[in-house]
Design a protein around this nucleic acid. Structure first.
Length: 135
DNA sequence: TCGCTGATTGTTCGT
DNA sequence: ACGAACAATCAGCGA
């Protein structure tokens, strides 16, 4: 959290990673990290923020506003976001599995077959999705 | 014209 | 166990 990475002066280090120049490591299949509950909450917050602050420019203002609001929320309010985040994580793991699969032994298989339906394999998925305590 | 930078927190990987 | 990196967003500015 706060004590996470030292943002001060670490800019240069990040540059190396971002540019990835020399390395032509192209990972088209590499799934992006799953959005945390905070980002999930932000997805909706961004829209609202834009509506209330259409003049705001930059992401800093939004980030601060979002962060401040997020901390103000109770675990119970974050619960739905956290739950969604968990689902995202599950998908992330699933994609990650496929990604590793290819890297490991799956030769670069170009999934040319696009009609393969994007989602299928739904492993039964525990029908009971926890009680939503919907009053 | 193209692309990085900034700020937020959480999650995930690596050492 | 700790630390560093990366996830989205948008406009502004540098080369």
């Amino acid at each position: 959290m706060k004590g996470g990475r030292s943002k001060a002066g670490s800019k240069d280090e990040r540059l190396s990673v971002k540019q990835s120049k020399g390395k032509k490591v192209k990972d088209p299949n590499k799934p992006k990290r799953a959005p945390s509950a905070f980002f999930v909450f932000m997805e909706g917050f961004r829209k609202q923020f834009k509506e209330e602050n259409p003049n705001v420019k930059g992401v800093a203002a939004m980030g601060k506003a979002g962060g401040d609001r997020w901390r103000s929320m109770s675990d119970d309010e974050k619960a739905p976001f956290v739950r969604t985040a968990e689902q995202r994580k599950k998908e992330y793991e699933k994609k990650m599995r496929a990604y590793e699969s290819k890297q490991s032994g799956g030769n670069e298989e170009e999934e040319s077959d696009k009609s393969k339906s994007e989602v299928n394999d739904e492993e039964d998925e525990e029908g009971s999705e926890e009680e939503e305590d919907d009053d």
